[in-house]
């Protein structure tokens, strides 16, 4: 995503270089994490919840769970740019403020570890908790669920997967730490990441459409053999 990347580098530039150039000292410089927490409570908790767990309901204030936002650059970009329904804080917050709140989000809110997952445990847990809706191949499933399909997860980032488990978007149930520990969430995220592009030792995976694609391929080949039989009958002549 070149666009996102350029936003991120822009944000980095803004965050780290601009203050030095301007020689501006941050007012009441104290513990950056404590300041970050303050700013978060002031500006962000309204939409993202007191602990960044996300808020559901009215679209204009429903912010997603931030507990998997580990990437400082991405968080800074989000604050600066304000994706979709989120307002842009580029003019509201000073650069050091943005930096502090972003640091608070990535260090204190993002509690779901992105390391230490176990792939095979993740596969087991995924089969138990997620495959009922998203199917084992993570290609998503259609539910008779007031018109909402469980989406294909093959392009979702690990952070988004981990976050979705905690906040439960739309009709999807949420799985609090009492159900899935942080480490288990990391395992599931690992599994989803793996299953997005699993190795296909057997050859073409036919987009993981499973028996539907297999049946289709079998019929294509069956018709090919009919063609061959016709060709043989003509004595191999055209």
């Amino acid at each position: 995503m070149p666009k996102g990347a350029s936003f991120a580098s822009l944000a980095f530039f803004v965050a780290f270089c601009v203050p030095v150039v301007r020689g501006q000292a941050a007012p009441n410089a104290g513990d950056p994490l404590a300041r970050g927490q303050q700013i978060f409570a002031q500006h962000c908790a309204e939409c993202h919840g007191d602990h960044g767990q996300g808020v559901s309901g009215v679209v204009s204030i429903a912010g997603p769970n931030l507990q998997a936002e580990h990437n400082l650059g991405q968080v800074l970009t989000a604050i600066e740019v304000g994706p979709s329904h989120m307002p842009s804080f580029g003019r509201i917050l000073s650069v050091p403020d943005m930096k502090d709140v972003a640091g608070y989000v990535t260090q204190k809110i993002a509690v779901i570890p992105m390391q230490g997952g176990n792939l095979s445990e993740g596969g087991d847990l995924y089969a138990m908790y997620c495959s009922a809706c998203h199917r084992t191949d993570v290609r998503g499933g259609a539910l008779v669920f007031d018109g909402v399909n469980a989406p294909n997860l093959s392009h979702k980032s690990r952070a988004l997967v981990a976050g979705a488990i905690r906040w439960g978007p739309g009709p999807m149930p949420n799985f609090p730490p009492s159900v899935l520990t942080d480490q288990q969430v990391a395992s599931i995220a690992d599994y989803v990441k793996y299953a997005q592009r699993p190795p296909a030792p057997g050859g073409s995976a036919m987009h993981w459409y499973g028996p539907v694609a297999e049946g289709f391929a079998a019929w294509v080949i069956a018709f090919l053999t009919i063609g061959v039989a016709m060709w043989i009958e003509r004595g191999g002549k055209g």
């Binding site: 138990m128 030792p201 073409s204 028996p211």
Partner: peptide, 21 residues
């Protein structure tokens, strides 16, 4: 050349796990 029934991706059968559709 064409993969069929990749059982390793489906995981072991577990009566608790549901596979829709």
């Amino acid at each position: 050349l064409v993969q069929i029934d990749p059982v390793w991706l489906y995981g072991p059968y577990n009566p608790v796990a549901i596979l829709p559709g």
